[in-house]
Simulated assay, not measured.
Amino acid sequence: MKRSLTIFFLLAIIGLVSSQISSTARQKASAQKVLMQKDSIKKSKILAQIQEKKIDSLVGTLAVFKPYKKEAHASYYADKFNGRRTTSGVKFYNNKYTAAHKKLPFGTKVRVTNERNGKWVIVEINDRGPFVKSREIDLSKRAYMDITSNKGSGGMTVTIEIMEK
């Protein structure tokens, strides 16, 4: 009788210990799921940014570009213009792929290539300018920083090509 009670108590203790171990394991597993969910949110934001850049690149590879001007001087908008209206009527944002040109029609897609390093970006003309004789095109800060080889410089020599429709 004493043996059966001892065995019963031992089994009960083993059951309690194993349930505590399994609950600890469940807590660890749920903590890992939470970490994975947070990590996947960060990854999805990063993937969205990469996909945004790929969309611009995809347009460039599928489109046909007609040469417009070689050895043109390009600069970028000052930060003070961020949020202001452009000549076309839309708001200017320095983090978008837009540009200002003196003569090209609004809505024209243009590929701007840095002649020094070969990097290029596709921008949409939505403003007039630059109002300096030596400059041909003003890029948004994001577009400029994507193709420049020297982040501290204010200008560079580029090739401008117009996307044919």
Rank of each mutant, 00 (worst) to 15 (best):
M1F: 11
I7N: 03
F8R: 09
I13Q: 08
I13A: 15
I14A: 06
L16I: 10
I21S: 00
I21H: 00
I21D: 00
S22W: 07
T24D: 10
Q27K: 12
A29K: 02
A29W: 00
A31V: 03
K33G: 00
K33Y: 00
L35N: 09
L35P: 00
M36A: 14
K38L: 03
S40P: 01
I41F: 15
I41R: 14
S44G: 12
K45Y: 11
L47K: 15
A48F: 02
I50V: 13
E52D: 14
E52C: 00
K54N: 12
I55F: 04
I55C: 01
S57Y: 07
L58Y: 03
V59D: 04
V59A: 01
T61L: 11
T61A: 02
L62N: 02
A63S: 08
A63V: 05
F65K: 02
F65Q: 10
P67A: 11
K70L: 12
E71S: 15
A72Q: 01
S75W: 01
Y77H: 06
A78H: 13
D79M: 04
K80Y: 15
N82D: 15
R84K: 13
R85L: 08
T86M: 07
T86S: 07
T87N: 09
T87E: 09
F92A: 10
Y93L: 13
Y93W: 08
Y93M: 07
K96R: 14
Y97P: 04
Y97N: 14
A99T: 06
A100Q: 01
H101T: 09
H101D: 15
K103I: 01
F106W: 07
G107L: 04
T113V: 10
E115K: 12
E115D: 12
R116D: 10
W120H: 15
E124L: 04
I125P: 04
D127W: 11
G129H: 01
K133A: 07
R135D: 04
R135H: 09
E136I: 05
E136C: 12
I137N: 03
L139F: 07
L139Y: 02
L139C: 07
S140W: 04
A143F: 02
A143S: 05
A143N: 05
A143Y: 02
M145N: 05
D146W: 01
I147C: 03
N150K: 14
G154K: 11
G155Y: 06
G155D: 08
G155S: 13
T157R: 12
T159N: 07
T159F: 09
I160K: 05
I162M: 09
I162A: 08
E164W: 08
E164M: 15
